[in-house]
Design a protein around this nucleic acid. Structure first.
Length: 199
DNA sequence: TAGGCGATGACCT
DNA sequence: GGTCATCGCCTAC
């Protein structure tokens, strides 16, 4: 593991348990996936394009993209600048603004309000309009302070990626109901019996 | 300008 | 657990 990827992992894990407030709803982050930027073939920043430009900027900005034409997915750019590393927010537990979140999520059960990256963005009403938002400044989308929590953190391969599908950079809080299920990308090569490949 | 694709979610069994 | 609809955007040409 390079020093950069060690940083990527550490920052991804540090996001677990932190709160995120957006457009009237606050949740506790329970599941994330790390993406290593230009060193990671699964990352949108692997090839530098206008879409991924935000990822090369300063850390703690919001990177939002549209997936399958329907869903929005929210990422926290973790830097450093020019590396393009980011953390996908996969799931969270709503702790404030339940009514608003339920209205946006068609009255889903509490633990399913922000289960899965598309649902999380929907519950928080995060769209491309929020692209590039500074998460540490007061504004429509704000990241809470780092927390010391006693939860056990588990790790596994990332969901749905077709490249580097065996890199275990998905992290979640153990015993959290809001954590989404693992599903391998149909485009990913068959899993090998070898240990997961590090970057 | 057109084609392909995707870090998904929902529904059904 | 497995299958399928979905469509805006990125990229290549």
């Amino acid at each position: 593991m390079t020093s950069n990827s060690a940083d990527v992992v550490r920052r991804a894990r540090s996001l677990l348990g932190r709160s995120l407030t957006a457009h009237g709803v606050t949740l506790r982050i329970t599941e994330v996936e790390a993406y290593g930027g230009r060193e990671d073939p699964a990352s949108h920043a692997f090839t530098r394009t206008p879409r991924s430009e935000v990822m090369y900027g300063p850390p703690w900005r919001l990177y939002v993209y549209r997936s399958y034409g329907i869903h929005h997915c929210a990422n926290v750019v973790t830097g450093p600048t020019e590396i393009g590393a980011a953390v996908l927010l996969r799931a969270g537990q709503v702790i404030d603004g339940h009514d608003l979140a339920r209205a946006r999520r068609n009255d889903a059960a509490d633990h399913q309000l922000a289960r899965g990256p598309g649902n999380l963005a929907q519950a928080l009403a995060i769209t491309l309009d929020d692209l590039g938002t500074d998460l540490l400044e007061p504004g429509p989308v704000v990241l809470g302070p780092e927390v010391r929590h006693r939860h056990r953190i588990e790790a596994g391969p990332r969901v749905g990626v077709s490249k580097a599908a065996d890199v275990p950079w998905r992290f979640w809080l153990a015993d959290e109901r809001s954590v989404s299920a693992y599903r391998r990308s149909p485009r990913a090569p068959a899993a090998t019996s070898l240990p997961p490949r590090d970057l």
